[in-house]
Design a protein around this nucleic acid. Structure first.
Lengths: 308, 308
DNA sequence: GGATTTTCATGCGTATTGCTCATAAATAAT
DNA sequence: ATTATTTATGAGCAATACGCATGAAAATCC
């Protein structure tokens, strides 16, 4: 026999209002339906909870005992489920995102601004990691999801590509290459290069592609972060191999970007999360914001730097 | 939309067992039905509570938050309703009965004995009252129900007659009347009588009947309780007018009962309770025991004393 | 490595449940 | 006595929930 939760709810209303008719109104059902619910509940427990004449209604002794518990049950249910519902609609809660440092200071601020506007009460924590450490943070559950450079496929993670970002050569206006429309990797022979090294995902990508093509441009200067690479290029120490997404920064500092071709090497920025695990509402909301914003921006950026 | 309590219950089971199939077994439904319940619940709250692959099932972050509350709700419901159900079957609880002193020491002990056997944990409190005070105790809610002498009908109370009990004359073996098969009220002239007085319902009954018939036997001795009346009769101070139900006691003390006729005056012992109010399970059980036992005994008693 | 097993999901027909409408029954008010 | 108010009941109908058969995906077995 099925649990007559409707009956319990009906019972509470009738007990509080002292009338079937009024309780029925509150529940938006007919008096008939209400009577039936009470009858089902009473049949279930096997005793009368409400003493009702054709004229009035009162609690029976047993009903009086039961009322507090009944009230608690109904409140728990209604409020508990309601909290879930609104949290699902509003995306309430805390989020932790593991991300590449470069994304954290280039693309994320905008996304976080629009997220903060939508969910003023939510907190966001960024874990800035490089290379494979993003993936690890996600896999180990330190972060709800991550933003990293796509590399090998993972069996226990799901990825969604946000943008494909070609590598370009960045150099000062006075650099010999600055005048070229494009430059091939093979044309980098003899040029002083600034490259990203260490745990950087960028390095891994570039090297993987180039070794396949048996091309070996040699970096004279290896730095650990994009800002440092840009600083070196600005001082004309060398030309830097960087993702095109950095354009805004490079242009702002008076540097020139030259597309690198043969082959065009891309890094793919992707959202990564644990497979078969649902995101919390808050995480889901942020995930969606980032995806929407960066898909738009990413496409535009890569188009901008790929077409000329 | 309706509250998916089944879904909540299903959710708890799946969360605890980690498997739809096993949870379905526990709930005695098919796996199909269980899946549907979870789906309904998730649709209701608008988010996934269980992350399930075709191979395994785990809680989602939100589900993990919800589980404790869900568990409490289900437990409250199941246990709460179960307690009511069993209390309805077993009649658990305390009872207070307002009763005439005479019934309290003549008929009730037997009834209470059999009640105590059936419901070892229940407590029973007796309020020994005389006459109209029983009725009052019931009306005011001091007692769950009462046993009193039926008199006037009451609008707010319900009565059920247990036995009709004729009045008899009780006297010692050596008393002149002891040899008679029966005696009329009019034949009591000149005999010293012991009568019940005070607030006693018996007195009210006897006087009401006799004044209608314009008969006026005059009591020389008026006592307040049956035991006293019997004691006086035993010492041959006079003949006592008492209900026939006292027979066992009178016979045991070596007294003679002579039926009083023209008219035969009865007192009716009745169960009395508030109209339109259900008894608690415990009270209901005791009520039933008393009714059954005294109906049997009462009928026998009144037959025994009415037919010869 | 392909077959098998295990586990959750889905389409569809059916049975049950629960609701509404109309109306009855009982009681209080006029 | 009549009317009005309040709960209960009967019948029909619509929505809901269930079960069966089957599908899809993944782990396990041989």
């Amino acid at each position: 026999m099925k649990i007559p939760i409707d009956g319990v709810q009906a019972f509470v209303h009738v007990a509080e209002l002292g009338s079937f008719n009024r309780a029925a109104e509150h529940l938006f059902i007919t008096q008939t339906a209400l009577t039936r619910r009470i009858q089902r509940l009473e049949a279930f427990v096997g005793l009368r909870l409400l003493d009702r004449t054709t004229r009035s209604t009162a609690l029976s002794p047993t009903g009086r005992d039961f009322l507090p518990l009944a009230r608690r049950i109904v409140d728990d249910l209604v409020h508990g489920l309601d909290r879930l519902r609104t949290s699902s609609r509003l995306g309430v809660g805390d989020v932790t995102v593991a991300t590449l440092q470069s994304v954290a200071f280039r693309q994320l601020p905008l996304a976080l601004r629009s997220y903060a506007r939508k969910h003023p009460d939510n907190r966001v924590q960024l874990l800035e990691r490089s290379g494979a450490l993003v993936t690890e943070a996600v896999r180990q559950g330190q972060a709800d999801f991550g933003i990293h450079i796509q590399h090998e496929p993972h069996t226990d993670l799901t990825e969604e590509t946000l943008m494909r970002d070609p590598f370009v050569l960045v150099c000062s206006r006075s650099h010999p290459i600055a005048k070229l429309k494009k430059v091939a990797w093979s044309g980098l022979q003899g040029i002083d290069l600034v490259t990203l090294g260490g745990a950087s995902g960028n390095r891994r990508i570039v090297e993987a592609h180039l070794s396949k093509a048996a091309l070996r441009p040699r970096g004279r200067f290896v730095v650990e972060s994009t800002p440092s690479a840009i600083a070196l290029a600005r001082e004309n120490v060398g030309a830097a191999i960087l993702p095109a997404a950095m354009k805004a920064t490079t242009v702002a500092t008076g540097l020139i970007e030259v597309p690198l071709v043969e082959p065009v090497v891309y890094r793919s920025i992707a959202l990564v999360r644990r497979k078969n695990e649902t995101l919390s509402p808050a995480a889901d909301a942020l995930y969606a914001v980032i995806k929407e914003q960066m898909l738009g921006a990413g496409t535009a950026t890569s188009r901008r730097s790929a077409s000329p």
